[in-house]
Design a protein around this nucleic acid. Structure first.
Lengths: 351, 351
DNA sequence: GTGAAAGCGCTAACAT
DNA sequence: ATGTTAGCGCTTTCAC
């Protein structure tokens, strides 16, 4: 009776077989698909299945060789709009390809990340997609390299999405969107409007995505023989609150600038509010630009000039390439382009 | 050799046992935890594990009785900010409780939803959390009821989050946030400012969340003996684009109103832009309010008056209650409160 | 303290 | 077309 109550309803393939008066293999065959089974038997089995509301245990199937492949998606923060769009891409493509999709946000905590990856290895995930920048330290490379190897040797693959590559020969796929190029184009646009002191609201200084965008900012200046004032380079994170705080501080410190470029649309949103709170008009008094082109960017006032990144497509691409390669494909590197979207938040200086 | 190449690296517990010169059971024991094993053996086993980079197959564990429990989270669109926050809550709480967390977005497609739930049943998920409103039809209740039953009889539990309950006796947990109450309070606030013609930018007419908010809008009017003009009740969906489109149409049709209440902050954002495009000032010419209190609401200009919903907490609560109940707990109903956040987008009429 | 054996729920040869 | 027999990789009695 103990057994009965705690296993209630959990019928096995043998229970079904018994009720249909056939063997377990027969049940497996009719459920499995195209194996020849007599119409009469099939009907009886199907009826038994329905009556018992039977669903085969996916774990048992998996271990026996059949089974739905799983794919893991690890990100820092599902709450960031750009990540959410990528997650959507991953999720959709995974579904389309008949894969299950585990999602984990790590809150930027390397320990969480490691734990989760270990779990995915235990799940025998077909691929794990790591997304978002990190600190590109030697430890990072070594650690990630080890992960890539053990994933590869277990028959699955690591995909780095918007993450620094590991150096040659590592069994990973890396897909990057061009942070430096996008920022370069954006800042070039701002400089073209005549701005000469442009404040940069960056992310964490050791974060590769932030670094790429910062490099673009610098490069765009240098390309015109300009040398941006180091004071104009601020660091925070990619949140709205960070943008708000940084902007307020810049204003309080009396920094001089005619334009501000934020590392992220979210940061730009916070900055915009701080600007408004200070009674400044955008773009009348100061111009503002963001990065990511999240849907909301159009609803800021003025609508935000920004860099479009094809996040959903990125996600889809990540799973497609992840699944399209065998374990021993060596490293492979894709770079997705971005383009600037001009809206109303950047004006010519002096206008 | 075929075998060798395709199974490379996939070492089993037996391989480890062989290398350590012990039996599989012993390996299982040292890995398992607290079973008495001699220090020497343990060391040798652990070394073998490390050398072979062995990770036990989670599916096999699961089927053998041990194993990490899994929890599934099904939502319409991971891209909606409020859902993303809920997902974060779910994900964090699941991680804290040592559960794996599958996420699926259905794009509002019932077929996807059904398929996914079936998969979760196959995975023997400990709980599946369904989130977001739907059309509350008899079919919905019957279908969901059936799902709840079969989940329950398989030892797991269905949680409905922001979804209509199923009627008495169904083995589900339902957690709702008070859509009607929130909208009531919000609209009451607007009416208190003297507005008498307030446009409502709603969601799909058959969507329960949308309906709840709409009911609140109506009730707030009636409570003051007002009878809102049916023309002022518009329907769309919960996206930014819907808000933009609806608002533009309302303006084109020459509808008269002094305030607009949107079913969602996203909708409000789109509406705000449409208002601006029409040269209208908010709240000078027309007042505007939203619903959800997403972080971005503060960065709209003017900052959006809205209703705060504790989405992350909702997610955490969902997993906590889901996991805290046995399969045969009958239906249980929680209602979370909300409160209005007054910011600058609603002004007294005539100001 | 450790090994042998049985079994979890399923599939896949191998027989008929 | 269908049943029997082995596994899959692990845990868990049950012996010793």
């Amino acid at each position: 009776m103990t057994r009965k109550s705690e296993d209630a309803g959990r019928s096995t393939i043998r229970d079904v077989a018994a009720r249909a008066g056939v063997s377990a293999s027969t049940v497996s065959r009719v459920l499995g698909g195209v194996y020849p089974v007599s119409a009469a038997t099939r009907t009886r089995v199907l009826r038994a299945v329905r009556e018992m509301d039977y669903v085969a245990d996916a774990r048992a199937k998996a271990i026996a060789g059949a089974g739905t492949p799983t794919l893991a998606f690890v990100l820092e923060d599902i709450t960031g709009p750009s990540f959410a769009h990528m997650a959507q891409g991953v999720e959709r493509e995974a579904a389309r390809l008949g894969h299950l999709c585990l999602v984990c946000s790590t809150d930027g905590d390397v320990r969480h990340e490691l734990e989760f990856i270990e779990m995915m290895r235990a799940q025998r995930a077909a691929a794990v997609i790591l997304v978002g920048g990190t600190a590109d330290t030697p430890e990072y490379r070594e650690r990630t390299r080890r992960i890539a190897d053990s994933l590869a040797s277990a028959g699955s693959r690591l995909v780095l999405c918007g993450r620094p590559p590991l150096g040659p020969g590592a069994p990973v796929t890396v897909i990057e969107y061009d942070n430096e190029g996008g920022a370069y184009a954006l800042v070039a646009h701002v400089l073209t409007q005549g701005h000469r002191r442009v404040l940069f609201l960056g992310g964490r200084p050791d974060h590769t995505t932030a670094q790429g965008r910062e490099r673009g900012y610098l490069a765009a200046h240098r390309a015109r023989g300009l040398d941006p004032d180091p004071e104009l380079l601020l660091h925070g994170d990619f949140t709205r609150d960070s943008g708000h705080r940084l902007m307020r501080q810049a204003l309080e410190r009396g920094l001089e600038f005619t334009a501000v470029v934020a590392a992220t649309d979210m940061v730009a949103a916070g900055a915009l509010t701080a600007l408004h709170e200070a009674g400044l008009d955008v773009p009348g008094d100061v111009s503002l630009a963001g990065y990511d082109d999240i849907p909301f960017a159009r609803d800021l006032h003025p609508a935000l000039t920004t860099v479009h990144v094809p996040y959903e497509e990125l996600g889809r691409l990540a799973v497609r390439t992840a699944l399209g390669h065998t374990a021993d494909t060596a490293d492979e590197h894709l770079l997705l382009g971005t383009h600037v979207v001009v809206r109303g938040s950047v004006a010519a200086v002096g206008d």
